[in-house]
Amino acid sequence: MKKTTSKRMFTFGLVLLILVLAACAPLYAPVYTVILLTSILMYMTIAVSWALFSGPTGYISLASAAFFGAGIYTSAILGKALPLPLVIVVGALASFCLALLVGALTLRLKGIYFVMFTFGLVELLLHFILWWEVTICGTTGRVVPPAGNATVFYAMLIILVILVLTVFIIRRSRYGLALFSIGENEEAAAHAGVHVTVLKIIIFAVSALFMGAAGAAMATRWTYIDPRIAFNPLISFMPVLMAIFGGIRPLYGPIIGAAIFTYLEEFLITRFPYYYMLIFGIIMVVAILYMPDGLVGLIQRLWKGISGRKHADT
């Protein structure tokens, strides 16, 4: 008992230290680093939100780009009229409502049908807005009023912290347990008294809420956006890969996965601009083949191996 409390204190202290160091980054780090850190925070937010719903339930959603894009477009439309915090809140709510609607329509689908539909949603929104801009507005693309690098950085940091706290609270409540039970056996979950459909839709929407917030905040960094930038399918795939790479189940799995992946992408693009996708692909294949529980699982296994041997020696 005592050991777990001291371990918990250590984890808490470590998280706090990283948080303080990160929060001060714009004060001492060069602009390039701040921009890279902002990208990392963005991918962390999307990967953690994705894992909040898809991790325990096993419903693999490829709609992340749709919810992220909804946030971006909210920012593009309201950016001039409203202050940034309000834009982010509206973007988050827009994604939340979109996900409620989509969830109510699709969460009766299972397995591959759900995956296909969620991916179709990204294309649907992309082409709908493209059509809208071409035929109704007459122009494609919009200018987003830019915000400073530090501002976007802090906005993303705050969004991520709120997200992590939310996921932490959900995971510890009975709803967290219920989400896992849905992934295990939906009918048995219903027998236990879980409102299966309602819970799925709400958690799906909560995960979309944070993706929308991230989209609304990040849009201010790109200054010009069009539907192809806003609804980039890569945003649907990356969080899935990051979460698998890091480990889906523990909360910090997707966080670690996102940090390593984003840095790796940046590193490979600058050093090997022609081969980076190839190298990326190879790393992913190796990760899926040899790390079924992700990086976190691998480390835990190695750690167990080491501490196990120590016990055997003494």
């Binding site: 219920a178 896992f180 295990e184 236990a192």
Partner: peptide
């Protein structure tokens, strides 16, 4: 409470978690 045929447990959850789900 309905204890279904074939038990319908949550196989990858611990015994304790399975029991706690009963008190959902």
């Amino acid at each position: 409470s309905h204890i279904p045929e074939g038990r319908r447990l949550f196989p990858d959850m611990s015994v304790r978690e399975n029991l706690e789900m009963g008190a959902y």
